[in-house]
Design a binder for these strands. Structure first.
Lengths: 240, 240
DNA sequence: TACGCAACCTGGGTA
DNA sequence: GTACCCAGGTTGCGT
């Protein structure tokens, strides 16, 4: 289950060096107190242009979707409503469903509002977490590419390309985790999310990652890519 | 109730000047005989590109829908089947329902066939009438923009823009009523249409037009716009 | 397979 | 600012 980094190296552990300078510091403190490190990283996804564009949907890579958000029985029909909370304590509800046409899992309703409020751009990263010891709360966060966190009113340091060149190299650069950014917090999931009872056989076989995958697929947007030995949270490694 | 033009100026009263030259004349005659001027204009809508496009649905502006086609109780669930008849005596059935998602009233099933057969284009106008003295017959008609009526096999005088620039100005121009066109007749409504028992309170207040409305709203697409004193049917006024 | 159709969603405009 | 329309989209089912 664990993304084979039980203690995710990019980390939500508060790095003072990252957070002491902005107003979210107290939030991270509070989180430490009330349940320290109880969150487990599920997965994250570097956002594609489509994810932040007019399609108003986030494609969730199949292996993650089936592992963490299995759609069972009746929920397979209409999908479910998933609730997450972000760093500010705000609750975000997304409709989560499977699209037969594209054979993919997506977050639809609600997603565009998240993109807008967080000022997400292609290359930014969304993260999903849950309580380490079970429980049904879900957490969502994001990291702006370039790591130059600024949840300020001004345009969130969107990096050079506002009219973004979504070139291969650009995307790859994007997938480095240079500096963490802002968004994250604790959440409450108020809707069902049965872990068992999958929709079809294919899921079962996906439930445990078959390979010690290094998946890449660059433009096919997969980017699982666990760079094997990552001794310590030293997030400013970038690879091209 | 009356759109405050009991005798609609654009008129279904047979104007020989408009109709004497084509083969629908006898129909208009017949209508005169069997119940002269007994039809009451309900409303009309200039068609948007979506109304005639692949979406296969006609959005009925809310105030008209709730006034003339209230969806009550059980009919609110699945909508109703409305039957209209056109100028040729042909009966058209449409599924009429309310879409929660967009909070709008729509004609769905059957609509695309009407569009196709009448060769409707964006900018053309559909009209809805009913018997003036009550009764449950409904009538549907249309007017081609440019007024150059031609229910001929050839492309119905679609005016300049076939690959239509649906620009504001274009749309506005469209809403002038230059010359009436072809389609209209008497119909039989074979399905329930309870005039009472509205879906919500808002309807009641709409029942009588509050203002001596000259509604315009140009791009908001309303165009109720009865140009007050219209002494005689002189339909070739166009305003931009 | 392709299309009609039911239901859903969102942005932009408006009031 | 906020709430509401509605034009223009989407998915997915059925035929």
């Amino acid at each position: 289950m664990a993304q084979h980094h039980p203690q995710p190296w990019y980390s939500w552990e508060p790095h003072m060096s990252l957070h002491h300078h902005h107003h979210y510091q107290h939030l991270y403190r509070a989180e430490q107190e009330e349940g320290r490190y109880e969150r487990e990283h599920m997965f994250e996804k570097p956002l594609t242009p489509s994810d932040v564009g007019k399609l108003n949907r986030l494609v969730i890579p199949k292996q993650h979707a089936e592992k963490y958000f299995p759609l069972g029985g009746d929920s397979g029909e209409k999908g479910l409503l998933l609730s997450f909370e972000d760093e500010s304590g705000k609750t975000w509800q997304f409709r989560y469903s499977y699209w037969n046409s594209s054979q993919s899992y997506v977050l639809t309703k609600g997603w565009s509002r998240f993109v807008k409020e967080k000022r997400l751009d292609a290359g930014d990263v969304v993260l999903f977490e849950r309580p380490r010891l079970g429980g049904d709360r879900l957490y969502i966060g994001c990291r702006h590419r370039g790591g130059n966190d600024s949840p300020s009113p001004a345009q969130a340091t969107t990096v050079p390309a506002a009219a973004g060149p979504w070139s291969p190299g650009y995307y790859a650069a994007t997938c480095s985790y240079p500096t963490s950014s802002s968004c994250f917090s604790s959440a409450k999931q108020d809707c069902l999310l049965h872990a068992g009872d999958q929709r079809n056989g294919a899921i079962q076989s996906e439930t445990e990652a078959p390979t010690t995958s290094k998946r890449l697929r660059l433009f096919g947007v997969d980017l699982d890519y666990q760079p094997e030995p990552r001794p310590d949270p030293m997030p400013s490694i970038s690879w091209v």
